[in-house]
């Protein structure tokens, strides 16, 4: 596997290493610059004067930012829970069963992943606008754009991503284990609850994390289906960013970076603990 250990360092090897370091610098330099300048006291982003937490105080006393954070968290929570349940069911149905119309369903599940964000955004905008108009005409009730429409849209694209991740996990699983449970007179539900679910749990967690990230990340679709009253944090920040570069945005951005790094750290920790649990189980048997 490891060719580097076998031969002495060739020029090619050195070039590869150099390229790798340049790429890592490319990855991290912009983020580091952003973080450093968020602690800059100066109004002007490009000129460093002295370190200060001024912009962070501004962010935390900014009502628009705080309400956008609240909307983001509600939408992320709702869409992650619903899409994780629906996506896991989809994965089970596609991977473990055979029925007519399955291929069509398979295609329907993959389409939201392939379709461009902009198209999806346009689709959902027209759908809600037209649907609400029809609802108004039919029963005299006209819902408004806001947290509801944002959540419904996020679920619509998240189901597919969860389904793909869980399905990959199901595909690696030994179906013999489920058959063994069935042979031991476990009911369908017991088999799922005691055998399948624990085994695919890392996949479900991974899918949920992906759904959460995508929901917290989305700008394009959300900006189309958000109402005048409710926007998410990325959409609010996007509005500010289009107008220019300010230290306040640097501070919000740094907070968003820290939040997503925390998410990754938690998920890595979670994966490690689930892996160590499995190895601990193996040790018990020995």
């Amino acid at each position: 596997m490891n060719l580097a250990g076998v031969r002495p360092k060739s020029p090619t090897e050195r070039l590869l290493a150099a390229n790798a370091w340049v790429v890592y610098a490319f990855f991290y330099a912009p983020i580091l610059v952003l973080i450093v300048f968020s602690f800059n006291a100066n109004n002007n982003v490009g000129i460093w004067t002295e370190p200060s937490l001024r912009w962070y105080r501004d962010v935390l006393s900014n009502d628009a930012v705080l309400s956008a954070i609240k909307v983001s968290l509600i939408v992320a929570f709702v869409s992650t829970v619903v899409s994780t349940i629906l996506g896991t069911m989809t994965a089970l149905s596609l991977e473990r069963f055979r029925y007519r119309g399955q291929r069509a369903f398979d295609g329907l599940v993959y389409l939201p992943i392939i379709i461009p964000d902009v198209t999806m955004a346009v689709m959902l905008l027209l759908f809600f606008a037209q649907g609400f108009q029809w609802l108004d005409a039919a029963i005299g009730w006209r819902p408004s754009f806001g947290i509801g429409t944002i959540s419904l849209s996020h679920i619509a694209f998240n189901i597919s991503f969860v389904a793909v991740v869980v399905r990959a996990r199901l595909g690696q699983m030994d179906p013999g284990l489920e058959e063994a449970a069935a042979d031991l007179y476990a009911t369908r539900w017991q088999t799922f609850r005691r055998v399948t679910l624990p085994l695919i749990a890392p996949g479900v967690a991974g899918g949920a994390l992906l759904a959460l990230t995508l929901s917290l990340d989305d700008v394009v679709i959300t900006s189309f289906v958000a109402g005048p009253g409710a926007t998410t944090l990325p959409v609010y920040v996007f509005g500010l960013v289009r107008r220019g570069v300010t230290p306040l945005i640097n501070a919000v951005s740094t907070l968003m970076l820290v939040a997503s790094m925390l998410l990754v750290a938690i998920s890595l920790g979670f994966q490690r603990s689930s892996r160590s649990r499995v190895t601990a189980l193996g040790d018990d048997r020995e």
């Binding site: 890592y24 610059v33 982003v45 490009g46 990340d217 640097n250 968003m256 970076l257 790094m261 990754v264």
Partner: peptide
């Protein structure tokens, strides 16, 4: 180390380049 920036917000990562590339940004300075 590849995944870490990848998981952080796309908007924020793009905005970082706006800071870097601006006429008053670090590169120009």
């Amino acid at each position: 180390m590849v995944m870490l920036p990848f998981w952080s917000n796309f908007l924020v990562r793009t905005y970082a380049w706006k800071v870097l590339l601006g006429s008053e940004g670090p590169i120009s300075q």
